[in-house]
Design a protein around this nucleic acid. Structure first.
Lengths: 297, 297
DNA sequence: GCCATGCTATCTCAAAAAGAGATAGAGATG
DNA sequence: CATCTCTATCTCTTTTTGAGATAGCATGGC
């Protein structure tokens, strides 16, 4: 059963004429006859009454319902990919905890306002996990630290974060090696790229094995830092955004360790759904907007 | 977009391999490649990721939903006409008032018990109206008086009714010409074949223009006959079924006028929906059952 | 690091199908 | 009864499909 046959069938039913149906679909009457006949053979029933007036038989009328369903589904699918309709369907986004907290809300709000038909699924996790999920097809796109090592993947530098050392007490300069060695560090669970930076930072000071506590949420981490449990390494902007809720102090770090770029990554653009395409556009716009008008970094 | 392409696409998605998909649908791998490629060209997006493991891209995943809808609708349609599923859909039945009252209930009950998925639409009306509706495609089948004059139509003699003269007073023999001329006759609205019989009956007695009242319902008619408003011509079995509610008297009539056959009529069997096919079967069974075991006629 | 294996893309040729035109036949109309 | 309109059928050309063979690429084991 070809969709074209169904389309011709519907045209015949609607116009009540083979000739009219042929004209409507830019073909020839003999083709209409052939297609209808083939449909009838395939289903084993006569679908169109030709004698007298041309109209669907009982069986034809029954087929109409199925044909309409199939054709409209087909049209919807085509229209969707042709961007003739508003984006719809699902969009599975992954993001780091810190990105989710600070950068994502305005973007998601803008996107959702413009494409309310899209079901957004937001997954939070460390970079390594997100990358794996993206590669295995469980995510459509993700915000991760650093560009994806994988080639053949789309990457857009979205935000650059400055990591700062966060502690309970004011710091004028880097704490001493003794202090650092004795202190605990608070980080997100395994796979977080910021955690790798902690180890980098410690290594640069000759310290190799400090105690690291794993946290699942940003709030818990900041709360524990404020309570003097230890140090954390977090994006400056994130800490600033939460400063009114937690009494913590920060110390800027040297660029090589401090600078972490957050990338928007996804598969190649030619594999994108319209929903993803529009989301990428929203991200791009948001990025260029904040970059050109340097508001609170 | 061909349904076959979608089927291959789904097989690839499900099996994660072009070769496996080809085997599953009894074809060759190169055909799978071609079909998928064509789909991708048509929609302008890559649907399947080939590098590494073969799996749907974001766009492919979006198409899956549409493809499933179209394919399952197609399968349902085919299964329906192939009688691989229980009958479903609509069934528009037409019947005369008297048939509806007496003959139809057991048939409809049997049918509905066996095919509860079928939506039954029952239209009541006089023979002429029903025939017109059947011919214009507004009905799938009908119970009418006498065979349909139209050829190319299916007709099954379902019941034979004996018309009797119904009056308020006991009748030993045919009322006199004077009585008949002075009396009113009660009949269904224009188009009812029983009404033609009244005119036939009167004509056979040399009376040509008697007063005829039109009624829409059997109950009203019998009630008015019992009240002495006039005579009616009705199937004996119908009157018998209502005798406990109305005090009326009947008189048998000579066969040529009395005998009226009720036919089950429909378009040719090769145009029937499965629902109609099963209904015709139910009618046939019901007819042969009552014919072989002569219970109350 | 090399080879074997398994997978997909591409090419080619034969077969099938679709499309378009011409014509015949059926039914409606005046 | 003549005419007009519509569908079925036939035929020929063009296009598409299907199947096989082969090349190219990645993966996994040795």
């Amino acid at each position: 059963m070809h969709l074209k046959s169904l389309r011709l069938f519907m045209a015949v039913v609607e116009s009540g004429s083979f000739v009219a149906a042929a004209k409507k679909l830019n073909t020839v009457q003999s083709n209409v006859t052939t297609h209808i006949k083939k449909l009838e053979e395939e289903l084993g029933v006569q679908l169109i009454q030709r004698a007298g007036q041309v109209r669907p038989t009982s069986a034809g009328l029954a087929l109409v319902e199925y044909a309409q369903s199939m054709l409209s589904t087909h049209d919807k699918a085509v229209a969707l990919f042709q961007n003739q309709t508003k984006a719809c369907g699902h969009l599975r986004i992954g993001a780091m905890e810190t990105t989710t907290a600070l950068r994502l809300p305005p973007i998601l709000a803008t996107y959702h306002a413009q494409y309310p038909e899209v079901d957004i699924h937001l997954t939070t996790g460390p970079t390594a996990e997100l990358a794996e999920q993206l590669l295995s097809g469980q995510l459509d796109c993700a915000f991760v630290a650093g560009p994806l090592k994988h080639e053949h993947y789309y990457g857009l530098k979205a935000f650059d974060e400055q990591l700062v050392l966060v502690g309970a007490e004011p710091m004028a300069s880097m704490p001493s090696v003794e202090t650092l060695t004795a202190s605990a560090f608070l980080a997100f669970r395994q796979g977080c790229s910021y955690r790798q930076r902690i180890e980098l930072l410690l290594a640069s000071h000759g310290i190799n094995a400090s105690r690291i506590f794993e946290f699942g949420s940003l709030d818990a981490m900041l709360g524990c830092v404020a309570a003097g449990m230890g140090y954390a390494l977090l994006p400056s902007a994130t800490v600033e955004a939460h400063r009114h809720r937690f009494e913590v102090h920060t110390l800027a770090l040297p660029a090589p360790i401090a600078q972490v770029d957050t990338y928007f990554v996804a598969a190649q653009p030619n594999t994108w759904t319209p929903a993803l395409e529009r989301f990428a556009a929203t991200v791009r716009e948001s990025v260029s907007a904040t970059r050109h008008s340097p508001t609170a970094a």
